[in-house]
Amino acid sequence: MTKIPRPFTHIDTWVFDLDNTLYPHHVNLWQQVDARIGEFVGSYLHVSAEEARRIQKDYYRRYGTTMRGMMTEHGVRADDFLAYVHQIDHSPLQPNPAMGAAIAKLPGRKLILTNGSTDHADAVLARLGIGSHFEAVFDIIAAELEPKPAPQTYQKFLGLHGVDPQKSAMFEDLARNLVVPHQLGMTTVLVVPDGIKEVVREDWELEGRDAAHVDYVTDDLTGFLQRLV
């Protein structure tokens, strides 16, 4: 049976993930965060870099974020974790006026839904030069430290911002984070690497582009948005 993707004609709210979605995977900004997370885990648990890496990725898969795993298993304070891992160099990000113009033309509201912090989101949006187009950022603190893909996180987001999922679209780089949005009625878009430049991702992070809960797949978010308006 052919999958018929949901349309965009009825959309009045546009929801975007942040990292590896609003900027290309190959910028590898998240690689810096990833390295900082490994350092934090190793230092906190007094284990080798190799063991820290194993724990980091295990918690990421099982809990949605390494931070959630560290909080649950070891009592880590979220503030300490976030403050450390987001001390990165945002300079690899370049302004993207074309994306900003495309986002500005989308009819309705634009919101950010991220497992990162608002401080990190603000820094990313400022470097891209697109922050003025977004009404609000819903971050891991607003989610009460429960990351995507937890169903309650999406419900909190929808409730806080008065969003009707049946009239919303969600853009994400992880297919698993689109399962619940699709179930709720959102039109879903998976943003993937362009296949040309090298990216640092786990194999499972790149899976799911053929999944039933993914309506559209793009390796060029700016171009995709331009074609919508």
Rank of each mutant, 00 (worst) to 15 (best):
Q183P: 14
D164W: 05
T187V: 01
G116L: 08
F138V: 11
T188M: 01
Q56R: 08
Q183F: 12
R176I: 05
V180W: 01
M70Q: 04
H74F: 12
G108I: 06
P5K: 12
D12R: 03
L184E: 08
S91F: 10
N177H: 14
K110L: 02
M1F: 14
A123R: 13
I130T: 12
V214H: 03
W14T: 10
L22H: 04
D139Q: 01
G116S: 13
V229P: 06
E50G: 10
G42I: 11
H25I: 06
E207G: 06
P7V: 09
E50N: 09
P193G: 01
R68D: 05
I140V: 09
H90F: 14
V192Y: 07
D173R: 05
S43I: 05
A98D: 12
I196K: 11
D122M: 08
A136P: 03
T72R: 14
S117N: 00
N20H: 10
T114L: 08
I103P: 00
S91Q: 12
G100R: 00
N28E: 06
H86P: 06
D219F: 01
M99K: 02
D17P: 01
V41A: 04
T21E: 05
G42N: 12
R201N: 15
L225H: 01
E205N: 02
A212N: 12
V199A: 04
I37G: 04
A150T: 08
Y63P: 07
H161L: 13
E202F: 04
L158G: 00
E144C: 06
F157G: 00
V191N: 00
T118I: 08
F81G: 01
G116C: 09
I112K: 02
P92S: 08
A169M: 01
E73V: 03
A175G: 11
T21L: 04
D210K: 14
V33T: 07
K57D: 11
Q226G: 05
V229W: 14
V41H: 00
R68G: 11
D80V: 04
H182Y: 11
L190C: 07
A126T: 15
I11W: 06
M186Q: 07
G64D: 04
A126L: 13
K197H: 15
I196H: 15
R176L: 14
A101V: 05
G116H: 02
V180D: 13
P147M: 07
L22Q: 10
A143P: 02
V76G: 00
L113N: 02
R227N: 14
D215Q: 02
L125F: 06
T65C: 10
A83M: 04
L160S: 11
R77F: 03
D210E: 14
R36D: 09
L178E: 05
L225F: 03
L18S: 01
I103L: 11
G64M: 08
V217M: 00
L93K: 06
G223M: 02
V33L: 08
A83C: 10
H26L: 03
H86L: 01
Q166E: 14
N28L: 14
D173C: 12
D220R: 10
A121I: 06
G108D: 09
I11E: 04
